[in-house]
Amino acid sequence: MNAVGTRRVALVTGGSGGIGRAAALRLAADGMAVAVHYAGNRAAAEETVAEITEAGGAAIAVAGDIADEDAMAAAFDAVESAFGGIDVVVNTAGIMILAPIATFDLADLDRMHRTNIRGAFVVSQQAARRVRAGGAIINFSTSVVRTQMPNYAAYVASKAAVEGLTLILARELRGRDITVNAVGPGPTATPLFFNGKNEATVDALANAAPLERLGEPADIAETVSFLAGPARWINGQVIYPNGGLA
């Protein structure tokens, strides 16, 4: 029993927009109390919180750089203080910078890997210490780990690292009744996806999957909902919701 009755409690990093926002809304619709994490866009996070609470749910906004262990410890503390514990951690926060290996700016490489690798590690570390029995930890990768598209090398390198740490954490939490999985979306209609792409590129990616469309944030949130709730026998896996792309 926690501060919001029998509701389970979820923390969604990057929950102020895109896939993270869709995941926060879906978990709230599933009956969970939700902490909507943001790094810089407080207004967007509070809009998500307002949408959840207006629908009868329980939600708060929490802030912090996911790569800063002190900031994330404080964020986890805030969730536990508000709701009595944490059952589900969904780590969608990340950045994507695209360029060929030969010309990639190493400062951009360091910045992206700080968020995507160190950030995933910090969030996973806090989750491993705090998620209650029966809970779930869900990190985010990308289907490009499998499709291996040019210009994605630095981003894929960061997400392959996330997959590796996720699968090992699942084994390290033996006996805790906590599942640990990763979600690797295909092309999904979010601002992060559209950034820097022309219409022809978007159309080509939309038509690449047999279902001939881009994924929607709600499609990915459906997978998160499954892993966060009923999927108690799926553990130490990477799920690729991508419409059959690869």
Rank of each mutant, 00 (worst) to 15 (best):
A43S: 10
A43Y: 00
A44N: 02
A44M: 06
A45I: 05
A45C: 02
A45N: 01
A45G: 03
E46R: 01
E46T: 00
E46I: 02
E47N: 12
E47K: 06
E47S: 13
E47R: 13
T48A: 11
T48E: 07
V49T: 09
V49A: 07
V49R: 06
V49N: 05
V49P: 06
A50G: 01
A50Q: 12
A50R: 11
A50F: 00
A50C: 00
E51G: 00
E51H: 00
E51V: 05
E51K: 08
I52H: 02
I52M: 01
I52A: 00
T53C: 06
T53Y: 04
T53D: 01
E54D: 14
E54W: 00
A55F: 03
A55K: 10
G56N: 06
G56A: 09
G56F: 13
G56E: 13
G57P: 07
G57Q: 07
A58G: 10
A58E: 15
A58C: 12
A58D: 15
A59W: 03
A59H: 05
I60S: 05
I60L: 13
I60Y: 03
A61M: 08
V62S: 09
V62A: 14
A63C: 14
A63W: 05
A63R: 14
A63T: 14
A63I: 04
D65A: 13
D65L: 04
D65K: 04
D65R: 09
D65T: 01
D65V: 02
I66V: 15
A67W: 06
D68K: 04
D68Y: 08
D68C: 12
D68M: 08
E69I: 11
E69A: 15
D70V: 15
D70I: 10
D70C: 04
D70K: 13
D70M: 13
A71L: 02
A71Y: 03
A71E: 11
M72I: 13
M72G: 11
A73W: 07
A73T: 15
A74T: 12
A75L: 10
A75I: 02
A75E: 08
A75V: 01
A75F: 11
F76H: 08
F76T: 02
F76G: 09
F76P: 09
F76W: 11
D77K: 09
D77H: 11
A78T: 09
V79C: 07
V79L: 10
V79Q: 04
E80N: 11
E80V: 12
S81I: 04
S81P: 00
S81H: 13
S81N: 12
S81A: 15
A82F: 10
A82P: 01
A82S: 14
A82Q: 07
A82D: 10
A82K: 05
A82Y: 06
F83V: 04
F83Y: 15
F83A: 04
F83D: 05
G84P: 13
G84E: 03
G85P: 14
G85N: 08
